[in-house]
Amino acid sequence: MPMAVGVIETLGFPAVLAAADAMVKAGAVTVVYYGLAESGRMLVAVRGHTAEVQRAVEAGIEAGKQVHGGKVITHYIVPNPPENIETILPIHFTQKSEPFRIM
Rank of each mutant, 00 (worst) to 15 (best):
F100A: 14
V57D: 01
R55S: 15
P90W: 02
L11E: 11
I61E: 10
Y76G: 09
S97E: 05
Q95V: 06
T74K: 11
T10H: 08
P99E: 02
V24W: 06
I77V: 14
P90S: 03
P14D: 01
P14L: 00
Y76H: 15
I77A: 01
E38Q: 12
A59M: 04
A26G: 05
T74G: 13
P99W: 06
L43H: 14
K71C: 07
E83R: 10
K65E: 15
V44R: 09
E98C: 03
I77M: 00
P79G: 01
H92D: 14
H92W: 07
T94N: 01
L89M: 08
P82S: 13
K71P: 00
M23Y: 07
I8N: 09
P81A: 01
L36V: 13
V7D: 05
A19T: 08
P82A: 08
T94Q: 03
G35N: 08
E83Y: 09
A22K: 04
H92Y: 08
A20N: 04
Q95W: 05
T74E: 10
I91H: 01
G69P: 01
T74D: 13
H49Q: 14
V78T: 07
I73E: 10
V46H: 07
G48Q: 09
E62T: 13
I8C: 06
G70A: 00
V57T: 03
P14A: 01
E52N: 11
Y33S: 13
E62W: 03
E38P: 06
Y34A: 14
V31F: 03
K71E: 06
A45D: 11
L43D: 06
E86L: 15
A18E: 07
V31I: 15
Q66K: 15
T10M: 08
A56P: 04
K65H: 14
G70T: 00
P81F: 02
A22L: 05
P82W: 06
V24I: 15
V67H: 02
Q54C: 06
Q95D: 15
S97V: 03
